[in-house]
């Protein structure tokens, strides 16, 4: 039977895929680690849905009791390694967004990989089917920023009112990844391009409110926003000579005000 360190399985659900994979490897669940490569999609009335794709990686091959189906239990030179490396494999969606993948595309950044696995696991436990892909944002060299992109059908549920759910997902993922790597890692989660859409919207609103402030001669106060969104407003109006921007109030209701300069 297969002596490979990794195995990819396709099945209608994660549970079925895992069961199928374990049966094929002849290993108990504890002996492998699972990575959801594609969480699949439901389709309509069971039609046109994509199946789930997972990758099983055999943990510390030598430490585990030899699985029944193994033909060559000969000791290997790399016995010290805690976990065999998965075969290098092109990222499933790397080619669809080459712009983001500025680093070496062959080897995924370990923090990005961890963020991807963490978010996939969270979504699975939230019973949300989606595909997750992550990469390191190399435009910011002095701090680790991981961009995680979530794609799928009917994912508005992951955004929530005022992106509350999306920000929660992002925060919990950052915490879990940071805890495992023992350092804070900024993880930015995006669902179906929401962040870009929102940024465009915020910039447009900033310009419109600035105009209004100038025209009326009165300061304009925007709705409460999280820090990352306030930052977009400040940056958009930084070079506008007619107005000044300030953040006022306390979290979580801190707001940007746009003040006309006299």
């Amino acid at each position: 039977m297969s002596e490979k360190a990794t195995l990819e399985v396709i099945a209608p659900t994660v549970e079925e895929a895992l069961a199928k994979g374990l049966a094929e490897l002849g290993l108990p669940a504890e002996a492998v680690s699972m990575e959801v490569l594609d969480a699949g999609s439901k389709g309509f009335l069971g039609l046109g849905g994509r199946q789930v794709r997972i990758r099983l990686t055999v943990k510390g091959l030598e430490e585990e009791p030899a699985p029944a189906k193994m033909e060559k239990p000969a000791p290997r030179p790399q016995a010290a390694k805690p976990r065999p490396k998965p075969e290098p494999k092109p990222e499933p969606r790397a080619e669809t967004q080459p712009g983001l993948n500025a680093g070496s595309p062959a080897e995924q950044d370990p923090a990005a990989k961890l963020a991807e696995e963490t978010l996939a696991l969270l979504l699975e436990k939230m019973k949300v089917r989606a595909s997750v892909s992550a990469q390191r944002d190399n435009s910011d060299s002095d701090r680790a920023v991981i961009l995680v992109d979530v794609r799928g059908d009917d994912l508005e549920v992951l955004i929530g009112r005022r992106a509350e759910t999306l920000n929660a997902l992002q925060y919990v993922t950052s915490l879990i990844v940071g805890k495992q790597l023992e350092q804070w890692v900024q993880v930015t989660v995006d669902v179906e391009g929401y962040r870009n859409r929102r940024e465009r919207q915020l910039r447009q609103m900033a310009r419109r409110m600035a105009e209004q402030a100038v025209r009326s001669g009165r300061q304009q106060t925007l709705e409460p926003m999280p820090a990352a969104e306030r930052r977009i407003i400040h940056i958009e109006l930084r070079n506008n000579p007619q107005v000044e921007t300030r953040s006022v109030g306390e979290e979580p209701t801190r707001k940007v005000t746009i003040v006309p300069k006299q």
């Binding site: 939230m126 949300v128 929660a168």
Partner: peptide
């Protein structure tokens, strides 16, 4: 943290 967990739980 608890509120973020609650938001995910709600989904």
């Amino acid at each position: 943290v608890a509120n973020a967990i609650r938001a995910l739980l709600r989904v």
